[in-house]
Amino acid sequence: MSDTDYPEETYAGRVLDADLHLFDRQVLDVDGEPAFAVDDIEISDVPIGLPLDPAAPAPVIESLLSGPVLATRTFGGRPPSSRLERIPWRHVSDIGTALTLGIHSDELDATWTERWVRDRIIGRIPGGRHDPE
């Protein structure tokens, strides 16, 4: 694959490359309904500008991020930490061509715009809450 033969690494579990396997993937809820796309990922804090302790445990993924962070990822800048829409990693139950959650999308804060549009507009139009015929 590369022109230099580096030694192969061994892994004790499933390997995920953030950009390759997680970023920009569709996330489905427990019923298979699309909930959001992975706009960014938050990992446990790493001291910035300070020497890292080689014995300290490596960071882990804390949350998937969705919403305003997409605009800043695309156009630059940074939303304040309090405005990040976080979906804790513990809700993720499977990773394939999409990520699957173990909970329902209505339980997530990150999908509030969907509920807002449903309650204020779409749900109020006649037929909006019925199956198509």
């Binding site: 699309p34 959001f36 969907e114 507009i121 779409i122 749900g123 037929g127 809450r129 198509p132």
Partner: peptide, 23 residues
């Protein structure tokens, strides 16, 4: 639009279950 942003979409769902798609 829905597929880019990861919203719920599809005619097989009732409109209220794919609100931003219908909007």
């Amino acid at each position: 639009l829905a597929q880019y942003f990861g919203w719920s979409w599809g005619k097989f769902r009732r409109p209220a279950r794919a609100a931003r798609f219908h909007l």
